[in-house]
Design a protein around this nucleic acid. Structure first.
Lengths: 346, 346
DNA sequence: CAAATCTCTGTAAACGCTTGCAATAATGGA
DNA sequence: TCCATTATTGCAAGCGTTTACAGAGATTTG
């Protein structure tokens, strides 16, 4: 039936084919009510025949909806982002929206440019995944009242739509779990401390220690940036301590895996000598050996929920922004075990 | 300095600010030669001051370049695609192009729509990653002479720009490696046989067997579709055989992991009872335990090369299409070992 | 049956930018 | 100094849509 799906079929071609004005065609395309049923079907048929497909750019330029949501992510690196995006993607598909993904390579400059660009109408709304310094974007977006939602990145003390996870609670639970296993010296590797999530995880860790009257030692806390090498370096440093920790809790799985490497490279066994806990539960966590005990963030669900919020906002533009925190969950695998008291060689 | 980075700064605002016509501003933006140096700097300054950022849609509509490359991928699932995209992303960033990513959820219908859409000018070129039935797109794109490159998906017998890997050789080498380890009964789990890559891998396997005068047995070949459950089902079936294989070669890592699960669930050990080999070398392959022996595809490099080809084509529009095959490499890890002869209980 | 309403459809003005063409200023040669 | 070039710049016509606004029939109403 479709004889010319490729070379630019415009609204005008369709109009001529159907014997109506192009304004009418536009109305049909946009499901405007004011079109006679008969005309509508005629136009529809013409569209079908010509293989018409609306031109996003033109529509956007003219001020219409694009039915496209933009996702701004730093990269596709760790699987973490991939999971979130899978959720977004699924939800969007359900609602017949399209997804446009931009990576920013962690350069704020470029990110800024993207946001400014996107705002000009190529997408109807924006999902920001853990951008590194989103504050400018947020203020920009808020100012011009552009719909957006933050994912897993509550900038400190802002009040914009966001979905995250219970980072504090998750870290608290994991730490408590280690304590109940008998561990008293628990090393902690932080994330990038400009992120609220990183701060919350550290606080959760500290709170648990305090609850169980275990002193918080600064030297047991290593400041990382969420990357694998940080985990390696952190664990290495922690192991060097004269009274080294019997467990290490890393602020994300990637760093936990780095830590595992470091521990093994020192000839120590996991979990026999050192227990390791991560955060996120990225897909690899299950496959790494020993399988990683970690705090699961409902990554995919976060993506879904954020998308729902955004789409919701699109419908009701002046809804008050919400912040949703999805529950985290401790997933116990094989990288942790009860502390066995034994003669320490060091 | 920037006092109004958000709300629509157009070329006209800049023009007024700089005291020139907007045509001139456009020329400056596009690095047209015919602008006096002094004027140029003045315009540049005005752009800076106003925080001007070009509107993609408008530019595209007016027929200019968008400096954006579209990537069409089925999903972000396995890490496989993520790797390829990382390469694309890196290369694009280098050349100051932007990346727009579309997922198609493996529904050809939507994919078709996307292609038609994109072609209308939102991107300058298209990178197609292993789309499932790309033939229509290919013919469409070719017909209207739209620049694109296929990644890891040589549709059978086409002659369009593509980059892939030496699938046949990789499978041959892996099989040969198993044979030299002493394995004679080697099970094979195929991929989706509409893909050339899947066919080539199977052929590589068969050829190696023939070279070493080992009969190709149809019942040792299980037809999968590249998904994890296929690996599980395939391995399960293979294990059921009265004279079960001592090694299983899966057409991709994801299926290999499924196979591992199946083997373990049957109470057999890897590699002691059954050796497992995968294909791709996705990031998880290294972390799974035992670490997976696999045929590495240079995924990231494939992304890079494809991008280079596409960008190249953009410069020289009437270059003859190339097909590049990047070499695969056998990565030996711990999921394989020499066949130890022993009393078989079965 | 004329006037008043609706329905439906056509028209035209944006949207922000590119680009060929025309116009003007500047430069060089005679 | 004047004219021919050339270097710059301004103008205006699109690009494909959306969307007020305005007609034109068709349908009601009094």
């Amino acid at each position: 039936m479709e004889e010319n799906i490729s070379s630019k079929v415009t609204i005008k071609n369709v109009a001529k084919e159907a014997g109506v004005s192009f304004g009418t065609v536009s109305r049909v395309v946009n499901n405007d009510i004011h079109v006679k049923q008969e005309t509508r079907t005629r136009v529809l048929k013409a569209m079908e025949k010509l293989g018409y497909v609306v031109n996003r750019q033109a529509r956007s330029l003219a001020g219409g909806r694009t039915n496209t949501i933009g996702v701004l992510a730093p990269d596709l690196g760790t699987g973490y982002i991939g999971e979130v995006i899978r959720g977004i993607d699924a939800e969007l598909a359900l609602k017949h929206y399209d997804l446009m993904l931009f990576t920013t390579h962690r350069t704020a400059e470029k990110e800024s440019k993207y946001v400014a660009n996107l705002v000009t109408g190529i997408v109807d709304g924006l999902l920001l995944i853990v951008s590194r310094r989103p504050d400018e974007h947020i203020s920009t977006l808020t100012r011009i009242n552009f719909p957006f939602t933050l994912i897993d990145h509550q900038a400190r003390g802002d009040d914009c739509p966001a979905v995250g996870a219970t980072n504090w609670q998750g870290a608290y639970n994991a730490t408590e779990y280690l304590i109940k296993l008998g561990h008293q010296r628990i090393g902690f590797i932080t994330g990038w401390m400009d992120l609220r999530a990183a701060i919350d995880r550290l606080e959760g860790y500290k709170s648990a220690l305090r609850t169980y009257h275990i002193p918080v030692e600064q030297k047991l806390i290593y400041e990382g940036q969420f990357f694998q090498p940080d985990g390696y370096a952190g664990a290495s440093a922690l192991i060097e301590l004269e009274d080294r920790p019997t467990a290490i809790f890393a602020s994300n799985d990637v760093m936990a895996m780095g830590a595992m490497d470091a521990v093994r490279n020192r000839g120590l066994r996991i979990p026999d000598d050192i227990s390791i806990v991560g955060f996120d539960d990225i897909p690899q966590a299950e496959f790494v050996r020993p399988a990683l005990t970690t705090v699961r963030q409902p990554l995919e669900k976060m993506g879904r929920v954020a998308t729902q919020m955004l789409l919701d906002r699109l419908e009701n533009p002046n809804k008050v922004p919400e912040r949703i925190e999805l529950p985290t969950e401790l997933i116990v695998r094989n990288s942790t075990m009860p502390l066995v008291e034994k003669a320490r060689s060091g």
